[in-house]
Write a protein that binds this DNA or RNA. Structure first.
Lengths: 238, 238
DNA sequence: AAGTGGTCTAGACCACCGT
DNA sequence: CGGTGGTCTAGACCACTTC
């Protein structure tokens, strides 16, 4: 059961996506939204704050709540964090397949234990997958999952969506993430997998993902094909 | 005059940076903060929400408000948007210099007019600068400023900080930005400027910056030296 | 059960925009 | 000056964690 302000934000988000407010590029006034959803002013404002944070709208005091272009065809929103399978409405029409390169249980060394805030020697899943969109190599993802949290994985799960499994089957809720973005030369092995040349630079995203209680459950490094992948993000000046 | 919740957020942010809460990695309880700052619960919560959005803390219901590592030495926080001069406490000790490569007034073509939401043929400043840290090439920034908003620029301003000038001298307030991040081959000219090889891929950030009233005032493309520049960002699952 | 964060309301008043 | 967003409060009650 979602709280009211999230429910309202979700409804308005749907309306925005369905182009209900395209004419005028403007949302109804706060007062009109209060009447529409039968909630107090603060609840509407909390809902709008969420939409501002997501980059859907901006507010101008004394004037209104305006739509903001936050989506560009072909770009991946790097702020999303529900996993590739759920993240990409844009490419969702395409078929996403995961080819397993490696799937094993290893013991965390000092570096990994540090990143995962777990004990040295703790068991972790190491999953390396080649991700294909309509059969075309899209990214190489090398992930580690804390086995104390993600107690079980199998081939079927990792060929589909690990994130769906974690949030729906294991019922964990994902809280936040740190991301590092940089450019790095491809190894011979990775270059072959993703269809580029060895020694060529491409774009890398390292991800450390936390549950809402602050535990690290996933540390990953993803290598993207720079020819096909551009990221977009929105920021607010707070 | 800042509103109370921003003032409170600012004070707590200072305390976090000054390591006041490092022991226990925890902030005082909401009730304690209410007493400390003599404000209502909702005001404290608004302040904490800002710190959550900035990646400083996370909240666990029933448990507390915990510190989150949001800063790693050597990484540039890509979510910041006050301009390089103000953004980088990390490298602020270093000397930032701007070498002007190009500074002229041009008329917006269709593509630029589209990006800047201005008329085709409208006058814009085009400023291309090589940015140096301690004398070392750090990035090449090619910017366009809407001349209807940024009515005047000169060599002195663009050798120092354009953003300081816009926010302090012109008294505009910056609202939000869209950023595109990708990897692209260097031209011969740019490769020479930044000290890499022609045809080598490096990391690019395109920036469209809006005032709080929704007007675009700056469109820019920055080319970074991939050897020296890695970005970091924090996200929340909302 | 006690402690701590999360949601919601009604109402008051302020600040800014446009006419 | 009317319309619209922005801030703030006191208080009630809920939900989760910790012991």
């Amino acid at each position: 059961m979602l709280p009211k302000y999230k429910e309202v934000a979700y409804e308005i988000e749907k309306d925005i996506i369905n182009r209900k407010y395209d004419e005028g590029n403007k949302l109804p006034t706060v007062e009109e939204l209060m009447k529409e959803f039968q909630v107090s002013k603060n609840t509407i404002r909390s809902a709008i704050d969420l939409l501002v944070e997501k980059g859907y709208v901006y507010q101008v005091q004394g004037s209104g709540i305006f739509l903001r272009q936050n989506h560009i065809e072909g770009y991946i929103n790097i702020s999303n964090m529900k996993g590739l399978t759920k993240d990409l409405p844009d490419i969702a029409r395409k078929e996403l397949k995961n080819k397993i390169i490696k799937f094993e249980v290893v013991k965390a060394d000092e570096d990994l234990a540090n990143k995962m805030k777990c004990d040295i020697g703790a068991e972790v899943y190491n999953v390396k997958r080649l991700r294909l969109l309509d059969g075309k190599p899209f990214s190489i993802e090398d992930s580690y999952f804390n086995k104390n949290i993600v107690v079980y994985l199998n081939n079927e799960i990792i060929e589909n969506s690990i994130y769906s499994y974690i949030t729906e089957a294991l019922n964990y809720s994902i809280g936040f993430a740190n991301k590092k973005i940089y450019c790095e030369k491809l190894s011979n092995e990775d270059a072959k997998l993703i269809g580029l040349s060895q020694g060529e630079n491409t774009i890398i995203v390292e991800n450390t993902v936390f549950l809402t209680n602050g535990l690290v459950f996933d540390v990953s490094k993803s290598i993207y094909n720079y020819l096909d992948t551009k990221f977009i993000m929105t920021t607010n000046n707070i």
